[in-house]
């Protein structure tokens, strides 16, 4: 269990846990891993996902309405870990559900569930001293977001605070699909390289094989979220794991790796 990108570009797949239901999330994660995903981001559904676009907002709302809690996400994480010991598993949440559980209790539970790391959407490096200490004690890797608007000084602090990889946001804005990769993306990755040896994964607006191939020229991995979550929304639950596996295989360029 570790966060490692075995090919270039690597692939990170985001799932809103509990949409359409917890068992399907588990099956989809396993399919995605078997189809070539290096890391699964298990999204913790939140009532107020202000960094997310309409697709993930809807998924989050459906999962919240079904009563999906952070404890449930941790349970799914443990099950995926048991089934796929080598996969990278990242918990992806807004801060409030984690605070409500309590930072230390959360860190311990995440560690016990076999998570490799944590990304909190609304946690910035300046506020993260205590959070990083608690993560470190539990042996979890904190991943922070880097934005095209972040000046170099911030990028350096972000790169130094990250473990496992750095999550670079390809463009300003919220999550969602788009036709073309933003021109911001390459410049951001180039700026980040000056501050870190860690792999750099690029997300927000990455939805097709063409995007993945194009960003592979300069980044180490692609993060695909809304394209996957949108597919899940359009697909009956019993067919979703297979559909997700096929999309992941396509994103990887066809070759099934497991």
């Amino acid at each position: 269990m570790a966060i490692a990108f075995k090919k270039r570009p690597g692939l990170v797949i985001y799932l809103t846990t509990g949409d359409p239901d917890l068992e399907t999330t588990r099956l989809m994660a396993i399919e995605a891993i078997d189809a070539g995903a290096d890391v699964i981001e298990l999204g913790v559904p939140f009532s107020d996902p202000l960094a997310d676009g309409p697709v993930i907002q809807r998924a989050s709302q459906r999962a919240v309405l079904r009563g999906t809690r952070l404890e449930d996400v941790l349970r799914v994480c443990r099950e995926i870990r048991a089934a796929r010991p080598q996969a990278g598993l990242l918990l992806f949440s807004y801060l409030n559900p984690v605070l409500r559980m309590g930072l230390e209790k959360f860190a311990q539970a995440a560690r016990d569930a076999g998570a490799d790391g944590v990304l909190l959407t609304d946690m910035i490096v300046e506020e993260a001293e205590e959070y990083r200490r608690v993560m470190r004690q539990a042996g979890l890797m904190p991943v922070f977001l880097a934005a095209p608007t972040s000046p170099d000084g911030r990028l350096q602090a972000i790169a130094e605070a990250c473990e496992g990889f750095v999550y670079a946001i390809s463009r300003v804005g919220i999550t969602g699909t788009q036709a073309e990769l933003a021109g911001d993306a390459e410049a951001l990755v180039r700026r980040l390289r000056r501050f870190t040896q860690l792999p750099i994964a690029l997300g927000f607006g990455v939805s097709t094989r063409e995007h993945v191939r194009a960003l592979g020229e300069f980044a180490d991995a692609a993060v695909v979220g809304s394209a996957i979550v949108g597919l899940i929304e359009r697909t009956p639950a019993e067919q979703a794991p297979r559909a997700v596996g096929e999309l992941v295989q396509q994103l990887c360029g066809g070759a099934k790796t497991a």
Binding site: L50, A51, M123, L145, A146, A147
Partner: peptide, 11 residues
Amino acid sequence: GRYVPETLMAA
């Protein structure tokens, strides 16, 4: 404090 997505920090 300040708990926002990184994109807003520069602003």
